[in-house]
Structures are given as C-alpha cells and as structure tokens.
Design a protein around this nucleic acid. Structure first.
Length: 556
RNA sequence: GGCCCCGUAGUUCAAAGGAUAGAACAACAGCCUUCUAAGCUGUGGAUCUAGGUUCGAUUCCUAGCGGGGUCACCA
C-alpha cells in the first residue's frame, strides 16, 4: 500500500497540496479506493472543503494506476486500476521499518500452588501475541515469565496440606490437586481466622528456608510448575527467561534497607516498611511486612533492577490484570523516587468474569482452563468426526485440538484489552462468524483449491490483468492494509486489531469465493490471477494467525 | 468518599474529530447435480442524559446517571 500512497501523495503535491498528506479508505468501495480529505487544504485557502475537493480533483489527471479522480463532498476519491494496484500490492515487497528496541515483555506470571483458570488464559494469550507482534516490527524481544512461587499464598496452601492432607497425595495430576488445596485452605481460613498467625509463621519458616518446610515447598512447587509447563506447551507459549519470586527475596530485602537509608522509605504504623506516596495521590505503599517477611513489592524492586542491569533492556513491558495497576503505579513511582529513569510500561487488561460475577478461587467459582479446553475439544471432536468420517482418529484429534485452541485463543484476543470479558461457555463453543475456526476454515478452503490445482502458482505481472472485479479489488486493498495494521497493533499493544483484521480479510475472501469461480474461471489468465490472489490471502491470514500465536490446519 | 476502566442494535464488539454509525451472534426468509454450507445472500434493529469546544462529536472537555474495579501488612 505504501507504493500506492506514495504515488497518490506525489499527485496531490503536484496539484499544490502542502504539508502532511493522509489518505484513508472511503466507507464504501464504490466511492473509491483511497480518499484525501480536504479540510486542512480548504482552511489554508479560505474556501469550503467541498469546493477545494472539486478544484483539486480537476487539477489531477488520471495515470495508469489512477483511473478516475472524483470529488464527493469534501473528499477527493481515487479509483485505482485493479491490475495496477494488484501489481503494487501483491508482487512488490514493502520494506519493513525497524524500531530496533530491546524490550522485555513479562507476562503470564502465575502463582504456583494455585489453579490455572480462564483469567490466566487471557494474560497468556495477550502476552504471546504482543511478543510476536513486537518481534515482527523489528524489536528484539525477551519473553519473560515471573513465577509467584513464594509468598502468602504458598504458605496458606502448605499450611493446609501439612495439617490435613499429608496422607492423601494423589499419584497423578499433583499440580492441579495442589491448586485445589489452596482453595480449600482459603475456605478453612475464612471459617477460622485465627489460623492467620499460624500461616504467617509458615511463611517466615519458608523464607528462612526451614529444612522440613522447604522440602515440602520444593516438591509442591515443582508439581505446580510442571503443570504450568504442560499448559504452556499446549497453548504454544514460549519464554526466554523465567524469573521466580523466591529468587528475588534477598535482594529485595536489601533494596528495602537501601530505600530506608536514603529516606525514601520509612517505618510505618505497626512496624512495616512503607513509602508515603500520598502527595502523588498514590496513598501508602507497603514494601515489607511488620514481621520482616516479604511482599510482592519487596521482590518486584529486585526484579526491576535485574531486568535492566542484567538484561540491558530499553523498555520493560509488564502485562497485568487491571486490578494491579494501582499497585504498579506505586511501584513505578517508588523506583522513580529512588532515582530510576527507566521506561516501564504497564499493559493492563480487564479481567475475565463469569455471568454470575467475578471469578474467585475463594468462592470456588472459577472456570479452569483445563475444563473449558476439554469441553471445546470434545465438541470439536464430534464436529470433525461428522464431517470427516474417513480420517484416521489421530488426524481427527489433531484437527480438533488445533480448532479448539484457535477458538479459545481467538476468543480471548478478539476483545480489546480494556474491555471486561464475560466468559460464557456458549460463546466459547461457537465456531461461526467472528471466531478462530472461521479464519482457519478460510485458509483450509484455499488450501483445498491449491491442492486441486496441483502445481505451484506461476506468479507474474502479465497475469494480473485478469483481475477486474470489485470483489477482487476489495481483497487486494485489504491485503494492502496488512503492514499498517501490524504496525499499529504492535505500537498500541493491541492484538484485537489484528484479530479483527484477519476476520475482515477472511470475510472478504469468502465473499469473493462465493461470487468468483477460481479453478473454473472464464479463462486461463483470469484463473492464474485469482490463484495468485488466493495464495496471497492465504499467506496473509497465515501470518496474522502466527502473530496471534494461533496454529492453523491444512484441512478441516 | 478518592482514584482507574467502561456505557453504541436483544447480546458481544467496530468506527486515529469527518462521508449514509459497521460487523458477529441471536431472530426471520432464501442458497449445496459446480472449487469445503464451520460458507454465502436478504430482512428488521443502536450512539446513557445535559451542557460546552468545533465548519463538523460515538470520538475531546465538564457535570450527572448507570455498571465494574481499586484504595497498609493479599497477589
């Protein structure tokens, strides 16, 4: 699209337009392919925009690329020659502009000793997509996970296990069992608040690496981690660096002392270490508990230091639940007061709730990733079986798995991050319309055509003159937008823009597919031209899916 | 109460201050001797309220109303 825009901008400049020129797509394709809005120009000339558009349109003469220039209201609309547009969009490679920053994206951050539910899923999906999009736009990206393997929640879980469950450990699925023990522990603590002091004692023992408790901790921690790694493998999440809270405790405590010395932190009510941020509207920030044991904040100080010192990154992006933004504002402010001038970006997504209310391990109304995956997978198993009786079971399962993951991941990514997702099983089970399977289906349709064609599609400019229809042009123009969509989605950390684009492109393709014969086109030239177009649609959809961390299928 | 996010068809969401506010789901009516009907076509249906800035506001500002979140030993 850049080549086309460059040429149009040149035409406009020759016609006397000065300054920045911005071209947009008109709302309806009949109106033209690209439009220039004349508001600025009109203002400079002191005439009304519709008049300016009319004058400007008359000054520009058609070229091989631009067939018609038309003023509609305040807009100058350019109608492009389809074959020429196809040449510039389908055949010419645009050079990518590189941002070239070194960015660490920290995401997922699950707590061991807890269950992995669909709220965690949203983070994992957004994170994977953000990492891929930032890489695509030329950044060096380090994908980091930060495991909450120590802290109050671990103490709660282990206190309960030690007290009630030492004799009934399961042989399998230890990781998810431990998560359930956490939930039971919370329930018990609610009934019996006095247990709090016992649990605090457990946390202190864990932090002082008491031998007996450490042994229990190591075993359960590993089981939790194995469970997470299994889920990441299924989801296709890969991390370059693993941080653990347990490894940040000591340095964190030291840093708290340093902040005390500098006078940035002080001892607050009850003996805890605090930073008073009330003059910044950020209340009181707690760094260390009164009994000397650590908080999230203690460890995050050390982690921030490690990220910039050890990994020498330019920016630190942290993907978190919106409920933690206040905490992160406090943390960033504290680092700033301590003299840090680093770029911290806090990418907050709204949470996933259930129709009956917020998910809470406490109330036991969480939807586990595992459960929803199994449900979607088995629904797709029967879908696939009903369509492909002849396939081997292994192939059917593999297809159902890919489709299930595409449905779940796309469902998490299609909502903008600042919208609360109300998670409904019914919606997760729908495979029509604005869904992952719809995009995969479109790719599978193209694969099928290519397979029937049976040869490599010959790509050459001479075939493109076969492209003349409106449906073809719509597709070409949409493909032309791809690079810009990637760029703005990456810059805005917004996978939903890319998800929407891939759906729109698939939709335009299916329209084309229904109206234009491909293998049975009117003549050989047209057929080849359409095959080239199909190939580029497939490539674009495939790339979009890849950037969203969604795997595709050959056929379905 | 302070601060943060969100209010658009029945529902879930679009629309860098610009053209007749777009989709999807659901509802209803059609389309498989032809490249995969997980598809396509058609029909109805919406900007929370009141001000302001602007040639122009769904978008920006102010106030209100409604929903959600958060505010010292949780993460």
């Amino acid at each position: 699209m850049d080549f086309i825009k460059d040429e149009l901008i040149k035409l406009l400049k020759t016609a006397g337009v000065a300054g920045e020129i911005d071209l947009s797509a008109p709302p309806k394709s009949e109106m033209g392919d690209l439009a220039y809005a004349c508001f600025e120009t009109a203002k400079k000339q002191g005439i009304n925009p519709a008049e300016a558009a009319k004058v400007l349109a008359q000054k520009i003469t058609p070229t091989t690329l631009v067939e018609k220039i038309e003023a509609i209201g305040p807009y100058v609309n350019f109608h492009l020659n389809t074959a020429q547009a196809a040449k510039l969009i389908l055949l010419k490679k645009e050079k990518k502009q590189k941002t070239g920053k070194k960015i660490m994206v920290e995401y997922s951050q699950p707590n061991t000793h807890k269950e992995f539910h669909v709220g965690h899923l949203r983070n994992a999906c957004i994170g994977a997509a953000v990492v891929k999009m930032l890489k695509e736009t030329g950044n060096k990206v380090i994908a980091a996970n930060y495991i909450g393997d120590i802290g109050a929640h671990v103490a709660k879980c282990l206190w309960y296990v030690k007290r009630h469950k030492m004799n009934d450990w399961p042989k399998e699925n230890l990781g998810s069992w431990i998560g359930k023990m956490y939930t039971e522990s919370v329930a018990e603590l609610e009934k019996n608040p006095d247990a709090k002091s016992e649990i605090d004692g457990v946390q202190r023992k864990l932090e002082s690496r008491d031998r007996e408790w450490s042994k229990l901790w190591e075993k359960t921690r590993k089981a939790s981690l194995d469970e997470f790694k299994r889920i990441y493998k299924l989801l296709g999440n890969e991390f370059d660096v693993w941080f653990f809270e347990s490894e940040e405790e000591n340095r964190g405590k030291e840093m708290v002392q340093e902040l005390l010395k500098k006078g940035i932190a002080k001892i607050g009510e009850g003996g805890a270490v605090i930073v008073d941020l009330s003059q910044y509207g950020l209340d009181i920030f707690l760094l260390l508990k009164s009994d000397g044991s650590t908080l999230y904040a203690t460890k995050d100080l050390a982690l921030a230091e490690k990220k910039f010192k050890k990994y020498k990154i330019d920016e630190s992006v942290v993907i978190i639940d919106t409920r933690q933004v206040f905490y992160f504002k406090q943390l960033f402010k504290t680092l700033e007061l301590a003299g840090w001038k680093k770029k911290f970006i806090c990418l907050a997504y709204e949470f996933v709730r259930l129709p009956e209310g917020a998910m809470s391990s406490r109330r036991g109304n969480v939807v586990l990733f595992e459960d929803i995956y199994n449900e979607v997978f088995s629904a797709l198993q029967s879908e696939v079986a009903s369509r492909h009786n002849d396939w081997k079971p292994a192939k059917r399962d593999e297809t159902a798995r890919a489709l299930a993951l595409s449905a779940i991941k796309f469902g998490m990514l299609k909502h903008p991050i600042d919208k609360v997702i109300e998670f409904e099983v019914k919606e997760a089970m729908s495979f029509d319309g604005y869904t992952g399977p719809y995009v995969l289906y479109t790719i599978a349709r193209i694969n099928s055509i290519m397979k029937k064609f049976g040869k490599k599609v010959p790509v050459a400019e001479k075939y493109l003159s076969g492209l003349v229809k409106g449906e073809e042009k719509n597709l070409i123009m949409k493909i032309g937008q791809f690079n810009q969509v990637i760029k703005s989605a990456a810059d805005g950390f917004d996978p939903s823009a890319l998800a929407r684009y891939s759906f729109d492109l698939a939709k335009i393709f299916n329209d084309f597919y229904g109206k234009c014969g491909i293998l049975n086109a009117d003549d050989a030239g047209q057929k080849t031209a359409r095959l080239i177009l199909c190939d580029r649609v497939r490539e674009t959809l495939g790339k979009a899916a890849e950037l969203l961390n969604i795997g595709t299928v050959e056929e379905m």
